[in-house]
Nucleic acid binder design. Structure first.
Lengths: 344, 344
DNA sequence: CTGAAAGCGCTTACAG
DNA sequence: CTGAAAGCGCTTACAG
């Protein structure tokens, strides 16, 4: 015998063998019944006995054994840049909810630095048995990782030829936002952009310029600032804009989190939102509702996003259909942070 | 042969046998080297050959097999009521960071309703191989669950005889907060309490009353309101307080999230914080820094909390010491939402 | 409808 | 220092 022998029955968790013994059936029958595959394979009497015995013993199938044998863990990993951004917390909740309906669970992996790619994913590979990956990181993974993730990962709000994407209609949302401000009479519109030069943010900027051009509003270099996703950074950036000689009457932010910095700077400068300056966000996260006045923003519907994400990933995993590229519509949510341009 | 036979080598993921074959060693040697247990057991030459072969094949150990055989998954589950509350997102990050240093990973489980206890934990039991549990839910689990969790779970900010607790010094934090307001000259101090009647919130209320009494300030029933953790609810509660004939000059909230509702209500009523009313929170989450002016609050240090939580859980799992009860000190963070009482 | 058995990919004690 | 082998607890095809 290979190992420290243990008298069965008195050990930690009960196994399917313990349940079988108690119910007077074979171990295989236990597995079938608890796996929901007993139809026409196990008699009524046995089924009842098995369920009773399992309950009495407090039996739960060993997930490692199940995963090892079946090759299926029913676990999906969601990779995001930062959970502390309430938007990604909502994305997690949306994905978790959609996944649960399909019998899957979601683990959350935070990818703070780009260097973490290797480390974190390797860790996830050796720690969890992850069946599928949803990457919402605005960063395309490195080549060796793409190989590991082939046919089991999708990208959200990003594009690469190496894996299917769920695209968001960022351009439409941004363009709605610009038109909203222009209709309110704004012409001095600044852009507080996100510092990372991911495609999703570059796109926002492109639409910002296009809209200015279409409405014959001159583009001004001094109305362009960029900020990291910290309050300090966005505060500084906003302060710079608001203290310009010819300060903007509206500031378009790439994210609700960045807009929070504008609120701080406006307060410092005794400016009132929206009377003195209109402010807009992007995401429609908790942040947009907490700010006073509530933030006009572009809503990314996290529940729908979760559903579509899970649907796309499962279709990829099951190879039911060729990877497709979809585009989720975003909608403008007008709240109290924008108003018509004041005559001063 | 039991099953669809597969010619080894050409299947999905490479196994330790593939690596062994390529390196010209036994499968066991591969396991030892990649498990970091090769010291004095495998020769230098073999080790190098194994590592090279593993790299070339892109080998990663199968986690389900490892967990099944070793009985250790290195996974800890953190159960919280709501990830959308930025405080719990920070708690997750703190725990994840501390756990990683010890070689563990953390999965996040959200427990919205008390009814979910059974369902979610059972699911976690059968989906993940969870070694240890951290319950930060302000709810003590039901009896049958306590049995399942025996000797592998700890409770944060809650108490039961059934499992070890990490206690937070809520009383101290709340008492500091009350003294801060009283020193500023406030006597009309209202309490916007959390609706759930968990011990942690009842304690805040007890300290609130004690402090009033100690400073000979009369307790007023009309200064007591309770609110769920939604903006709508806390807005309503705050509105009620602020429209009293004899409105309070300070509102003490059980959580930063609740304070956000006070900001909204104050804005509606054209009241300025802190000039017209001082507001305080609890947690020191992202919310407290986003609000304008930033919120005076009681800080729960999520990084330290994560470290202590993991340390306590691991000591319980390893049975290195008897479960102990510790109490994490909290500190007052004075920001811009509180000021001296204005003479009107 | 039921039972006996193979085997998922590892870890680990043991014999050499 | 190396190799052969047992076995973790399941799932699933197969023989009855």
């Amino acid at each position: 015998m290979g190992e420290e022998s243990t008298d069965s029955g008195s050990r930690g968790a009960p196994t399917s063998i313990d349940v079988a013994r108690r119910a007077g059936v074979s171990q295989a029958a236990v597995s079938l019944v608890l796996g929901g595959k007993a139809a026409g394979r196990v008699g009524k009497k046995s089924q009842e006995a098995i369920l009773r015995a399992a309950k009495e013993l407090g039996y739960a199938p060993n997930s490692a054994a199940r995963t090892l044998r079946s090759g299926r863990s029913q676990v999906i990993a969601l990779v995001v840049p930062d959970v502390n951004n309430p938007f990604f917390a909502a994305v997690f909740e949306g994905a978790e909810c959609a996944a649960r309906k399909e019998g899957y669970s979601v683990i959350l992996i935070t990818l703070k630095d780009i260097q973490d790619w290797q480390q974190l994913i390797n860790k996830a590979f050796t720690t969890y048995a992850v069946e599928g990956w949803v990457l919402y990181t605005m960063r395309v993974p490195t080549a060796p990782l793409q190989e590991l993730l082939r046919d089991k990962a999708i990208l959200v709000d990003g594009f690469t030829n190496e894996m299917p994407s769920l695209l968001l209609n960022i351009a439409h949302g941004m363009s709605d936002m610009m038109q909203h401000l222009i209709q309110l009479g704004h012409t001095r519109i600044a852009h507080l952009a996100a510092a990372p030069d991911d495609e999703t943010f570059l796109l926002r900027h492109r639409v910002y310029r296009e809209q200015l051009q279409q409405h014959k509003i001159p583009y001004r270099d001094d109305y362009q600032v960029r900020s990291a996703f910290t309050l300090e950074s966005s505060y500084q950036a906003a302060y710079q804009l608001l203290t310009l000689k010819d300060a903007p009457t509206a500031i378009v932010c790439d994210s609700d989190m960045l807009a929070a910095g504008v609120y701080q700077a406006a307060h410092t400068l005794h400016l009132t939102i929206p009377a003195d300056v209109s402010v807009t966000g992007f995401d429609d996260s908790l942040v947009s509702r907490i700010l006073v006045p509530p933030l006009t923003t572009v809503a990314i519907p996290t529940q729908t996003l979760g559903e579509q994400t899970i649907a796309l990933l499962l279709s990829v995993l099951e190879k039911k259909q060729a990877p497709y590229f979809d585009s989720l519509p975003l909608s403008l949510v007008v709240r109290g942070s924008t108003t018509t341009i004041a005559d001063k």
